[in-house]
Design a binder for these strands. Sequence first.
DNA 1: TTAAGTACGATCATATAAGTCGGAGTTAGG
DNA 2: CCTAACTCCGACTTATATGATCGTACTTAA
Lengths: 161, 161
Amino acid sequence: MLKLSKKADYALMALQYMATVQYGEMNAFNIHRVVNTKEIAEEHLIPLELLAKVLQTLAKHEMIESQNGPKGGYVLAREPGAISIAQVLEAIEGPLGIADCYHEKDDHAACDQMEHCNIRTPLLKVQESIVQLLSSMSIEDMMAEPPLIIVESRKPEGVQL
Amino acid sequence: MLKLSKKADYALMALQYMATVQYGEMNAFNIHRVVNTKEIAEEHLIPLELLAKVLQTLAKHEMIESQNGPKGGYVLAREPGAISIAQVLEAIEGPLGIADCYHEKDDHAACDQMEHCNIRTPLLKVQESIVQLLSSMSIEDMMAEPPLIIVESRKPEGVQL
DNA sequence: TTAAGTACGATCATATAAGTCGGAGTTAGG
DNA sequence: CCTAACTCCGACTTATATGATCGTACTTAA
C-alpha cells in the first residue's frame, strides 16, 4: 500500500546520485560533471534500459539536461534544492492522487460512484497533506546519506469538523 | 501514484456508512442497527461480491462484527473515533510502506539494491509522516459528509540535516 | 568516420488488482 | 424442522499496471 513504483525509486536514486556528484562535498567547486546512464545503473544495480527511460522522462520534464554523443550523459537542470520529491514523482507516474477522482481538474473523472461517494472530501484533505509533504522535500534533503530528516505531520487538536 | 485500491476505497465507504447509520445524527439513541452487505453495495454502486470480501476482511481484523442468518449483517466493533484510516488500510492491503524494504521488521527485505540504496533513510522519514497522518485520522473524521477536515503537514523550517 | 552515448517506440513478461462463481455454514421466522 | 436470507471462504478468471527488453535512429567528441 502506498508503495512507490520501481521507476520512481530509480528516479530518486539517480537524482540523488547526480546531486551528490555535482554538488556534494566531493565537489567543492561545483564542477558539473556529466554522468551517464551506465554509471548510475552499475552503481545502483538498476537495469540499464529501464533507467535510461526513466532519465529520458526526467529530461523531458526538464529536471535534468541531456548531452548527446560520447562523453555525453545527464546533468541536473537546476539545484537539488529546487527539485521537489513531488515533482519527480509526478514526472514519472503522472499526477499524484490518492484516488483517480481526486484531481481538482477532472471533476468528471472516471468514477461512477461519484454521487454516492461519501469519502471524497475527507480523503482530498489527506491527499493535500501528503502532496504538501512531498512538495516540501527536495533532492537536497536526500543528499549526504545517511541523512537525518525531521518531518512533522499532524492533525491539530481541537479542529472542528 | 499513491493511489488507494478500490478495495480500500470500498472499505472506507462502507465504514463511513455504517458509522453514519449507527452514530450519525439520524440516530440520536445509538441504536446499533445491523446493516447488510447488499444495502451498502446498492447504496454505493459497489459490486456485491467484492464488497462482501472486503467486509469479511474487516471482520477478521475485528473492526466490524458479523451477525449471521437472516436480518444479519455487520456492526462496527468499536466507536468510529477508535478506527483509524491507517488501521483500515493495513487490514485491507497489508502493512503500508512507501517501498517494500521500508518496514522496520524486514530489514532483510527483498531489495537487492539495499547496499547501494541512497534514498532509504530519507524516504523512511517521509513514510513515517504519512503513516502518522493516516493514524491521526479516524472514521469519525469522515462522517457527516461533506465535512471540513483541516490537516497540516509540514517540514519545520531550519531543520538541520 | 566511428564508437559512445542519448532518444524513442514497440513488445513481452509478470505481478497485482478487480471482479466472479460455487458451495458451505449460520440463524430468524414460519 | 424447513427454508430463505444472510455471512463465510476459497478458487477462479479477467483486466490493468508495472517491469523489463529489444531494435533502431539520432547526435557528437575524438
